[in-house]
C-alpha cells in the first residue's frame, strides 16, 4: 500500500519536473522569438516612423510617432535640389520589368532542360550558371565602362539593363530549375494517355502548375534587379538612374546636412511595396530563395 502511494508520488513529481522543463523551454522559445522580431523589425519601424516625422524633429527619439506629417514624402519627390526620385522610381520599374521579362523568357527553356532532360555536360552547364551568379560585379564594370563610353551608351537604359541580366538570368535559371524539378511531371504523361496532344498537355496541365513557380521566380528576379546599385552608380545618368542610386545620392537644401527624414520617406516608398509583395507570397518566396539559394 505505502509502496504504491510512494510510487505514485514519485511519478507525480517526475511529471511535474517534466512539465516545468517543458514550460521553461516554451518560454525560452518565446523570449527568443521576441528578440528576433525586435532585431528584424525595429530598424525598419524606425525608418517608417522617421518618414512621418517633421523635419524639425529629425533626431527625436521617442518611440511612438510624434509630429506626424506627410511633408517628407513631398520633399522626396521635390526636384529643386537636384533629386530625381520620381523619375528614378519609373526608371527602376522599367529596368526591373525588362530585366525580369528577358531573363524569364530566356531562362525558362534552360530551366526546363536542366530539370527534365538528361544530357552530357549537365554538371558543367549548372556549374557555369551557378558560377555566373556568384560573379563579382566589379569584374564586369571596368570593361563595360570603357565599352559603353566608346559606343556612347553611358547613361542609357540598355547600359543598365544588359549588366543586370548577367546576375538576374542565372538566378532565374536555377530557381526555376529547382521548382521544375519538384513538379509532378507524371501528369503530363497521364494527359497524353488521356488523349491530349503534347502541346495540349503542356498548355492545359503543365502551364497552370508551373505558373506559381514562374511568378515567384519573377518576383525574386525583379527584387534583385530593383536592389542593384554598383553598376547603376557608375553607368547611369540623372535621367536614367534607378532608385538605389537616387537614394544614395539624395541631396538636401544645405550641402552638408543629410535630409534624413526625406530619405527615410523615399526609403519607405521603395520598400513598402516589396515588403507587402514578399509577405503575401511568403511561402513561395522562401521556397524559391532556399531552393535557388541566393540573396
Amino acid at each position: 500500500m505505502t509502496a504504491a502511494t510512494e510510487l505514485r508520488a514519485e511519478q507525480d513529481r517526475g511529471r511535474k519536473v517534466a512539465q516545468n522543463r517543458e514550460k521553461w523551454a516554451q518560454s525560452r522559445t518565446y523570449i527568443s522569438a521576441v528578440v528576433i522580431l525586435f532585431w528584424c523589425l525595429a530598424p525598419a519601424y524606425w525608418m517608417v516612423v522617421t518618414a512621418f516625422r517633421d523635419v524639425g524633429y529629425t533626431y527625436d527619439t521617442s518611440i511612438l510617432p510624434t509630429h506626424v506629417t506627410l511633408d517628407n514624402f513631398k520633399t522626396a519627390f521635390d526636384t529643386s535640389f537636384g533629386n530625381h526620385f520620381g523619375q528614378a522610381l519609373l526608371n527602376s520599374l522599367f529596368i526591373g520589368a525588362v530585366v525580369t521579362i528577358v531573363s524569364l523568357v530566356i531562362g525558362v527553356f534552360a530551366a526546363y532542360a536542366l530539370a527534365r532532360l538528361n544530357f552530357k555536360f549537365k554538371y558543367l552547364v549548372l556549374g557555369f550558371i551557378l558560377g555566373a551568379s556568384m560573379f563579382p560585379g566589379v569584374a564586369l564594370i571596368t570593361p563595360l565602362f570603357q565599352l559603353f563610353t566608346n559606343i556612347g551608351w553611358m547613361g542609357t537604359y540598355q547600359a543598365l539593363i544588359i549588366p543586370n541580366i548577367s546576375f538576374v538570368l542565372p538566378l532565374t535559371v536555377y530557381t526555376m530549375t529547382s521548382f521544375f524539378r519538384e513538379m509532378p511531371w507524371e501528369l503530363e504523361e497521364s494527359a497524353r494517355v488521356d488523349g491530349c496532344t503534347q502541346g495540349q498537355a503542356f498548355r492545359k496541365v503543365i502551364m497552370p502548375l508551373a505558373a506559381p513557380a514562374i511568378f515567384t521566380t519573377a518576383i525574386l528576379a525583379f527584387i534583385s534587379s530593383w536592389n542593384e546599385f554598383l553598376i547603376a552608380s557608375q553607368l547611369s545618368s540623372d535621367a536614367t538612374q534607378p532608385v538605389t542610386v537616387a537614394i544614395a545620392s539624395f541631396a538636401g537644401a544645405q550641402p552638408n546636412q543629410i535630409p534624413y527624414t526625406a530619405i527615410m520617406a523615399a526609403g519607405t516608398i521603395v520598400t513598402i511595396p516589396l515588403v507587402i509583395l514578399v509577405l503575401v507570397f511568403q511561402r513561395k518566396i522562401v521556397a524559391g530563395l532556399t531552393a535557388g539559394a541566393v540573396k
Partner: peptide, 22 residues
C-alpha cells in the same frame, strides 16, 4: 517570426545603408 525575417532581406541595400547611417 518567419514573415518578419523577410523584412530586412526585402529592403534594398542602398536603403539599408542610409537607414543605418541615420
Amino acid at each position: 517570426v518567419r514573415a518578419a525575417v523577410l523584412v530586412p532581406w526585402a529592403i534594398p541595400t542602398a536603403v539599408t545603408a542610409k537607414l543605418w547611417l541615420f
